[in-house]
Amino acid sequence: MIVFGIAGWSGCGKTTLIEKLIPEFTARGISVSVIKHAHHGFDLDRPGKDSFRHREAGASQVLMLSNDRWVLMHELRGAPEPTLEEQLRLLSPCDVVLIEGYKAAAVPKIEVHRPAHGKPPLWTDNPHVVAVATNAGIDCPLPTLALDDADAIAEFILAHSHLRP
């Protein structure tokens, strides 16, 4: 299993890129999972639903399932956020795990950079950025990839990780 990050500032297009990369990998017979790190709270549940009521009552974990999917919600209740390594151990076996966020994680990553956003590049201070996907010409010592070329970005990730279907 390879772990590869997609990093960048909020609003730069990380989620959109991952959304385009997944079918590129699956078309090659490569199974993909995604870990999305959020810096803010989130909730998959809705007030009033049974699973919400169970969590509100104090359950540490609630597993919901149907014929189509299942989800396990775990309440930290003040415990520290699990490490990336701990989260990776929770995933079912797959070929590629794409990570959105985790800018500082010690995994290779592609930075999504849009100069028009006015944010500084991450690659200048982050040794784990191995390439930059951008929509503009930039002066960068790393490989630069066209942000709208998901096929080339997928190929870069596979070549960098030495994974071939």
Score class of each variant (00 low, 15 high):
residue 33 S to T: 00
residue 57 A to I: 09
residue 114 R to W: 11
residue 130 V to G: 08
residue 20 K to W: 05
residue 142 L to H: 04
residue 3 V to A: 08
residue 90 L to W: 14
residue 126 N to W: 11
residue 114 R to A: 10
residue 7 A to C: 15
residue 137 G to W: 00
residue 28 R to D: 01
residue 109 K to L: 00
residue 105 A to Y: 12
residue 132 V to M: 04
residue 132 V to Q: 02
residue 131 A to Y: 02
residue 32 V to Q: 03
residue 154 A to M: 08
residue 87 Q to A: 09
residue 21 L to E: 02
residue 97 V to A: 03
residue 68 D to K: 15
residue 115 P to C: 07
residue 19 E to F: 07
residue 31 S to D: 04
residue 76 L to W: 04
residue 83 T to R: 13
residue 101 G to S: 09
residue 133 A to I: 01
residue 89 R to F: 02
residue 51 S to K: 05
residue 151 D to C: 04
residue 110 I to K: 02
residue 61 Q to K: 12
residue 74 H to F: 06
residue 135 N to I: 00
residue 69 R to D: 04
residue 40 H to T: 11
residue 127 P to K: 14
residue 66 S to G: 14
residue 139 D to P: 01
residue 61 Q to D: 02
residue 141 P to I: 12
residue 10 S to H: 10
residue 133 A to K: 04
residue 128 H to N: 15
residue 122 L to G: 04
residue 65 L to P: 00
residue 16 T to I: 08
residue 78 G to F: 06
residue 130 V to T: 13
residue 55 R to D: 01
residue 152 A to Y: 04
residue 112 V to M: 04
residue 156 F to L: 02
residue 139 D to N: 13
residue 64 M to N: 09
residue 14 K to D: 02
residue 116 A to M: 06
residue 115 P to L: 08
residue 50 D to G: 11
residue 64 M to G: 10
residue 35 I to E: 01
residue 76 L to N: 01
residue 18 I to N: 02
residue 149 D to L: 00
residue 23 P to T: 06
residue 34 V to R: 05
residue 143 P to A: 05
residue 63 L to F: 09
residue 138 I to V: 15
